[in-house]
């Protein structure tokens, strides 16, 4: 899962690159939350950027989008106001519809900005852009590595359990999942020891090196941000 994602991140076409793209998204997100015009501009621009970056965009957003739509439907039936439509005991009101549409737009817009970051930035690049230091950086990078190893491990275990019909029926699936997670737990501890040995063998001294990343098209990034800020003024 994350292995293929990493190759997507490396191969995607990055119109804006380097630490500036991380900051672009981090600054854009609060702006998106604030104002409707910014949301419209951001939705169009970031969707275009993400789609241009990689076709994987469409696959990436399916799960978050379905969660958002589900949540918005719930909101639509929650808020009181003047009734405009009803199904049995569920009512849609003028205020609930307004809130639902606002939330939908805000979420879609924010997700499109976030997905540009997801599609183009590997985690080490993200961490180097936000200039994280010390033990936090170490734990986060080692944790990232551990996630990849464990996901790969888990995938292997899952496939072999599936091949033995371990997931036929809810009861069996639950039992299988619990056994898998226990084995994963054991493997995790095995990995800790291997980690330690590998680090020592490479003279690890507490400094996890990351590549330096160059900014690309910073002018474009800044004008994009300026455009968003303009939306704030309108």
């Amino acid at each position: 899962m994350s292995e293929s994602l990493e190759s997507v991140q490396v191969r995607s076409r990055k119109l804006i690159d380097g630490p500036i793209k991380v900051w672009l998204v981090i600054v854009a997100l609060p702006l998106i939350l604030i104002d409707l015009h910014v949301q419209l501009i951001a939705l169009i621009l970031f969707s275009a950027l993400s789609l241009h970056a990689s076709k994987y965009f469409l696959k990436l957003i399916t799960v978050p989008l379905s969660f958002i739509i589900l949540g918005v439907v719930v909101i639509m039936f929650t808020i009181d106001g003047k009734e405009i439509a009803s199904f049995y005991f569920l009512k849609i009101t003028d205020k609930s519809l307004e809130t639902a549409i606002n939330t939908l737009l805000r979420s879609f817009s924010a997700i499109s900005a976030l997905s540009y970051l997801v599609l183009t930035t590997t985690l080490p690049e993200f961490l180097s852009a936000i200039r994280i230091k010390g033990f936090l950086k170490e734990i986060m990078l080692l944790g990232y590595r551990a996630i990849q190893v464990l996901i790969e491990e888990f995938e292997t275990l899952r496939i072999s359990a599936d091949a033995r019909l371990g997931f036929s029926g809810i009861k069996k699936a639950t039992k299988t999942t619990s056994m898998l997670s226990y084995i994963l737990f054991l493997r995790a501890f095995e990995k800790v020891e291997k980690f330690e040995r590998a680090k020592e063998a490479r003279c690890y001294s507490g400094n996890f090196p990351i590549l330096k990343f160059e900014n690309k098209n910073s002018v474009f990034a800044i004008s994009l941000l300026a455009l968003l800020a303009l939306g704030l003024l309108v």
Partner: peptide, 28 residues
């Protein structure tokens, strides 16, 4: 914890991975 025992770093990192993977497990 880390200052007391530098080995705890790897343990924490793997625990982080474990939490991530555990919360990504799919349940029917």
């Amino acid at each position: 914890e880390i200052e007391k025992d530098p080995k705890a770093k790897s343990l924490l990192a793997v625990s982080l991975g474990f939490i991530f993977v555990l919360s990504a497990l799919k349940l029917p």
